[in-house]
């Protein structure tokens, strides 16, 4: 969005000198902007090795997709994408990244052969999908219907079981059309996930000592004393129990 406004501002100046810009369709310009951001960042997710960077690119990609949703008039879905996907899910994911971000795992390299094979497969799949996407004529050519003011109300009504966007003839009785049942199911589902997440994060008293060899395999334990000795010329021992010390250990 910020990019959008800056782009508008700069093209404004350009537009005065370059007449063809007058023909620009702003909808298309912003679509291209967001589409390029979404696709470029998705590609970067694939190509990046560092898992934190992958998460960052994913944020940009999903954020740009939210912009696409806004452009398509699905404002509620766009805002939801920002709120739940970018703001919630990805923060969760980043938490996961950081919890497991041991130096050896931050970037796990994939072999070149695997990459080439995956690229080949992906290319084939992409071709297939593109052919399908571009082969239907009415899809390529938008109609003359201008954008109407979008509203989240029909969607909200549909989620509680009333379809207001369709003529009454098509919709059955109130409560049995729309998405009331899926809505309820998904609510319960979310509750279950919430409980599961709380279960996962619960604290328990330590009963058995931590398996030492596993810790060791991750990172050799460094003692406080060892660590303290680094960068110090004369290591001063920690003050022991000094009931009646006359002369300080620091001297």
């Amino acid at each position: 969005m910020i990019g959008g406004s800056v782009a508008v501002a700069s093209t404004c100046c350009l537009g005065a000198v370059v007449p063809p810009l007058a023909m620009l369709d702003w909808h298309a310009v912003f679509f291209m902007l967001f589409a390029a951001a979404a696709c470029g960042c998705a590609l970067a997710v694939v190509l990046a090795d560092n898992v934190v960077r992958m998460a960052f690119y994913l944020v940009l990609s999903l954020g740009a997709t939210a912009g696409l949703f806004f452009l398509a008039g699905a404002e509620f879905v766009g805002a939801m994408q920002l709120m739940i996907y970018v703001g919630g899910t990805l923060v969760l994911l980043v938490f996961g990244v950081m919890l497991t971000a041991q130096a050896p795992f931050v970037s796990i390299k994939t072999s070149a052969a695997e990459k080439a094979f995956a690229g080949l497969l992906g290319g084939a799949l992409l071709t297939l999908l593109l052919v399908a996407a571009l082969s239907v004529e009415p899809w390529r050519r938008p109609g003359s219907v201008g954008p109407t003011e979008p509203s989240a109300t029909p969607l909200g009504m549909a989620l509680v079981g009333v379809r207001v966007d369709e003529p009454p003839a098509h919709s059955p009785a109130v409560g049995r059309s729309g998405y009331l049942l899926p809505f309820e199911i998904i609510s319960v589902h979310l509750l279950v996930v919430l409980v599961a997440a709380a279960y996962l994060a619960r604290a328990k008293r330590r009963k058995t000592p931590r398996p030492v060899e596993m810790v060791a395999s991750v990172e050799p334990p460094v003692s406080v004393a060892e660590h303290a000795a680094i960068g110090r010329e004369a290591a001063v021992g920690a003050p022991a129990r000094s009931g009646s010390v006359l002369v300080g250990g620091g001297s």
């Binding site: 919890l99 041991q102 996962l200 994060a201 619960r202 604290a203 328990k204 008293r205 330590r206 000592p209 931590r210 810790v215 991750v218 990172e219 334990p221 460094v222 406080v224 660590h227």
Partner: peptide, 18 residues
């Protein structure tokens, strides 16, 4: 540390930091 009841362990394994 093992005997200290204040030290609790979480299911998620986290690593100590100096």
């Amino acid at each position: 540390l093992d005997d200290d009841p204040r030290i609790i362990e979480f299911d998620v394994r986290t690593d100590e930091m100096l």
